[in-house]
Simulated assay, not measured.
Amino acid sequence: MFRDAVLQRAPNKPKLMVTLDLESSETDRERDIICFYKQANIDWSRPFEARLRGDVALGDGVTRHFFSLVLEKLSCGLHLPLDNCGGRTLIFVGEEDHRVPSTSGTLVDGDLFRVVGRIIGHSFLNRGPLLCGLSNCLLPLICGDKLATPVFEMKDCPDTDITDIVFLLESERDLTEVEKGEVNQLAMSWDLPMVTIQNRRWLAERVLYHGVIGRRLQQIAQIRAGLKDTGVLQMLKQRPDLATVLFPRGAEEVLEPEFVLQRVLWPEPDSDEEDNIEVLCKATSFLRAYIESASSSELRQLVQFWTGWTVVPEQMTVEVEADLTFPVASTCFTTLKIPGRYETFPEFSNSLKAAVATTQFGFGRV
């Protein structure tokens, strides 16, 4: 209801557009995405359109592809070496459903988490994919719910050196002098008192709190600022319980074959020719078998190839065409076109996997 109310005020506003060059490098495209979301004084509720330079595809499918690409980079990291680690720059770290923002000072200094907040809010307003697996302990802070007390657990801390100290403090045995030195060194670096017999339990809680939340207050503030820029923070202030809608659990994103099959519109034979019916039935049976045997990850990749993102629509159409060489997706119309030339399921499966793998390089076309 909130999203619809925001978008109802936007149809007559100038269109917001972004263009990605498919012939440029991965890092250059990531720079373009960051530059786009770093723009100041933008009304993110405006009608949005994404375009791909180097691909003839147009329409809603391209926009869906854009949001899937951007949210994947938030989840998996950037190729841009922003934090001088020499590899992929991780924006969020930790286990699934316990992920927290990176403590990289470079990302904070570059105001990158404000970009993250804008991306999350912008994708939400356009009914796109969302950032999954964020730790629940961060949600009250993002909402600004001052009455709620963050509840965190050991899994929320991705730093093993900190969790090792917490385990030491929570243990029942006496600490050695070496262990006391390690605890005190960490405590003093965070302006906490040195360990004593009386404060061990309290100190364990403070170390864990600082390791999970205290080191990430700037990142959380920037995410809130980005959500405020898109207008979505207002929704969270009014209804903090909707934070679980904006930041769903990773387990909720598991796709089941039955759920996908329920949305598929299968083709019906439009000819009485026995050969055509046989080709149609064989091709569709191969696709059904592929969906039934696919993992959740493979299903998400298939749905993204088919529709442009991993959000499963109400209907996904299948067409069988005899003159196709490889499967092709018309994402604007959520239509998957599969060749009718396959004689065996392994041949069909390998061909579909090869086509699906092209999504990250272009727009679902070989």
Rank of each mutant, 00 (worst) to 15 (best):
Q360A: 15
N84T: 10
E268V: 15
D60F: 09
L130T: 11
L112W: 09
K73P: 05
E278Y: 10
P193Y: 07
L233D: 00
H122M: 08
A294Y: 06
V279Q: 11
T284K: 03
G231I: 09
L203G: 06
G362N: 02
P150C: 08
R288S: 10
R51T: 12
K146N: 12
C281F: 10
D323V: 11
R46F: 03
L82F: 04
G77K: 04
F348H: 07
R64E: 05
M235S: 10
L52E: 01
L22V: 08
T160D: 13
L107P: 01
I197V: 14
Q234I: 13
L112Q: 09
I277S: 13
T331I: 03
Q234Y: 13
L336F: 05
E182W: 11
D229Y: 02
E172F: 11
R215E: 12
P313W: 07
G340E: 08
V356F: 06
L80C: 02
T331D: 01
L112F: 14
V6K: 10
M154P: 00
T244I: 13
E256L: 15
L175D: 04
L336D: 02
Q234T: 14
R118P: 01
S123I: 00
A294M: 08
T149F: 07
Q238E: 15
Q219C: 14
S293T: 13
F286R: 02
A204R: 07
K228Y: 11
I220D: 06
E298W: 02
L131V: 06
F113V: 06
G364Q: 03
K228R: 15
G250M: 13
G117L: 01
L169G: 03
D241F: 11
P248Y: 06
R206I: 06
H98A: 14
S349W: 03
V328K: 10
G128C: 07
V195H: 04
K180P: 04
T27Y: 00
C132L: 12
W190S: 05
P14Y: 08
D323I: 10
I197A: 15
V115M: 04
L147T: 12
A57C: 09
S330G: 09
E256I: 10
A187H: 08
A148W: 01
H65M: 09
C332F: 08
K353A: 11
E95P: 00
T344P: 03
M154Y: 04
L302W: 05
E72P: 00
F286K: 00
A10Y: 02
L80T: 02
S135V: 05
L134P: 01
I119M: 12
G144L: 04
